[in-house]
């Protein structure tokens, strides 16, 4: 039971990083960024390219590359499309997603590649009879620090306050002098940094890379956001932990005949939530964004 809980916390932390990266952009500019998955892919392959360097250096370089990729996407594709409908933005992100996937396919080929970034993190420790992976501890800890950091940034810095204002009413924020370009670029930067860290943890957990590795994480991120309630930033993180808990519990306790259909059940649940509780499982209508 406690083992399952640690598992769910670790998985939930990973989902939370992904979901927050997506939710940040959605709350500010109404963009559902499908290409967020490809930021994770870029992160994974960057980590592979820097394999052999000390882990901290490789991770720092990965974060730098993914943030640069996110800023490039913003500048070249999303800034010209700003103000377009949510559907157009979503299709733009699909186009970027296909583009990056195709690019990775061209450069790295379709075959899965494996990489071991764990090093000493692969070990586990015994705590009161439980075996806890050092990786799980690292994921939970680092995510905790990043979430607190984000909360501090949004509360205590002028740019953070501007971002919260933009998330509530972008037009009014601009009318007060908030620079749209700066706020959006910052959001993309944070989103990219979170995607990079998520990529490191994801690759550390699975050890494999494929050009389409970003698809499942981005879909899970969407699910977490819907669970928490569309457009509410911190609810996305809560949704991520709930999703992880559900997923671990279903895995552990679902009868074998149904286990194969677990994902189908999760996605059907999402549809039901959207139909009957569009503001999330614990949410109430708030603000204007849906």
């Amino acid at each position: 039971m406690a083992q399952n809980l640690i598992n769910a916390l670790s998985l939930g932390s990973l989902y939370a990083l992904i979901a927050l990266g997506i939710a940040l952009l959605f709350s500010i500019m109404g963009l559902i960024n499908f290409a967020h998955g490809e930021l994770i892919t870029i992160g994974g392959y960057t980590l592979l390219a820097f394999h052999g360097l000390p882990l901290a250096v490789a991770v720092a370089l990965t974060v730098a590359v993914v943030v640069a990729a996110a800023l490039t996407m913003e500048r070249l594709a999303f800034r010209p499309a700003r103000g377009a409908s949510g559907e157009t933005l979503l299709m733009t992100s699909f186009a970027l997603s296909l583009l990056v996937q195709g690019g990775v396919l061209l450069k790295e080929g379709a075959d899965p590649q494996s990489v071991n970034v764990l090093g000493s993190l692969g070990a586990s420790v015994d705590v009161g009879g439980m075996t806890i992976g050092k990786l799980d501890v690292a994921i939970i800890g680092v995510t905790g620090v990043l979430l607190i950091g984000l909360a501090w940034f949004l509360r205590a810095t002028p740019l953070g306050v501007q971002m919260r204002a933009a998330a509530e009413d972008f037009t009014m924020a601009r009318a007060l002098g908030v620079r749209a370009d700066r706020v959006v670029a910052t959001a993309f930067g944070v989103s990219g940094a979170f995607a990079a860290v998520a990529a490191v943890f994801l690759v550390a957990r699975t050890g494999t890379l494929t050009p389409s590795m970003g698809l499942t994480p981005v879909l899970l991120g969407f699910v977490a956001i819907v669970l928490g309630g569309l457009g509410r930033l911190w609810a996305a993180a809560i949704g991520a932990y709930v999703l992880a808990l559900l997923s671990v519990m279903l895995q552990a306790y679902l009868p074998t005949g149904l286990a194969a259909y677990r994902d189908a059940l999760v996605y059907l649940g999402i549809i039901v939530i959207l139909l009957f509780r569009p503001h999330g499982i614990a949410g109430r209508p708030q603000g204007v964004r849906v």
């Binding site: 559902i32 959207l274 849906v290």
Partner: peptide, 9 residues
């Protein structure tokens, strides 16, 4: 957007 996500799900 809700319709888009639901149809994807």
């Amino acid at each position: 957007m809700a319709a888009g996500i639901a149809s994807l799900a």
